[in-house]
Simulated assay, not measured.
Amino acid sequence: MRLVHNSLHDEVAAQLREKIFAGELAPGTFLDEAQLAALLKISRTPLREALKVLTVEGLVRHEPRRGCFVNEVTEQDLDEIFPVLALLEGRCALEAARNATDADLEALEALHQKLARHAKARRINEYYAANFAIHEAIIALAHNRWLATAIADLRKIVKLARLQQLHAPGRLDQSLSEHLAVFAALKARDGEGAEAAMRTHLQRQRVALRELARAQRGVLS
């Protein structure tokens, strides 16, 4: 008997997750089960199971007698999440410094060179992609699936906020400098230094997001 690894409700959850991250289902949107079931051409049973998955992930909230809504991320949520992310990714950097081979460091150096080129050319979208690849590489080098899972779950909530901290004034160059500090510590096999540098990097991301949100409120007021 062949096992089916992806059940229907997992596939539905993936589709809904993609729509949420793409902004097709905006924060606060009521998730009408009848409409979604018709749109996805499925029955309500797998849809409800998918909504349970997204509720556990924090992307959806369930309100008794009202139904499900796309979750909204508040400034307080971000204030609480980023210190935890800083701790987790800092630990990944520490373990990566212990585990990285020379070949791993060469691959990371190539990614940082790409990051620097994108920063110099002010290619923000490409910078984001290289930045994500670097974070993923460091997480993978930690060889700790519990850290990786916890970080992935928190990232989903941050992604829901649809905020771009690199648009804050001066943040692009600051971010590059922080990344280079992390890499320098990794290259020196300085676990504690890499951990501290990664924590600083995540903490400054939150500061940049807060400043950007404040500036946007000022424009709207």
Rank of each mutant, 00 (worst) to 15 (best):
M1R: 11
L3D: 04
N6S: 14
S7H: 04
S7V: 04
L8Y: 06
L8M: 11
D10T: 11
V12G: 01
A13S: 15
E18I: 00
K19Q: 14
F21P: 00
A22C: 05
A34L: 08
L36M: 13
A37C: 08
A37S: 15
L39W: 09
L40C: 09
K41V: 10
I42W: 06
P46T: 07
L47M: 14
R48T: 04
A50F: 06
K52M: 11
K52R: 14
T55E: 15
V56M: 07
V60P: 06
H62Y: 15
E63I: 12
R65Q: 11
T74A: 02
T74K: 05
E75I: 01
E75L: 07
D79C: 03
D79L: 12
E80L: 13
A86K: 00
L87C: 03
G90A: 04
A93E: 00
E95Y: 02
T101R: 11
D102C: 06
A103F: 08
D104V: 01
L105A: 15
L105T: 02
A107R: 15
L108T: 03
H112I: 02
Q113K: 09
K114P: 00
L115V: 04
A116I: 06
R117N: 03
K120Y: 10
A121V: 04
R123Q: 12
R123C: 05
N125K: 11
Y128Q: 01
A130R: 08
A130P: 00
A130F: 07
A130C: 14
N131D: 15
A133Y: 01
A133W: 06
I134M: 10
A137H: 14
I138V: 14
I139T: 04
H143W: 05
N144Q: 08
R145T: 11
W146S: 13
L147E: 00
T149Q: 14
A152I: 04
D153A: 15
L154W: 05
R155L: 14
V158Y: 05
R162W: 02
L163P: 03
H167P: 03
H167G: 02
P169G: 13
P169I: 08
G170E: 07
R171A: 13
L172Y: 09
Q174I: 10
S175L: 10
E178N: 11
E178Q: 15
E178S: 10
L180P: 01
A185D: 02
L186W: 07
L186Y: 10
L186A: 12
G193V: 06
E195H: 11
A197D: 01
A197P: 02
A197W: 02
R199L: 03
L202W: 02
Q203E: 15
A208Y: 09
L209G: 01
E211M: 14
R217V: 01
R217N: 10
L220Y: 08
S221N: 08
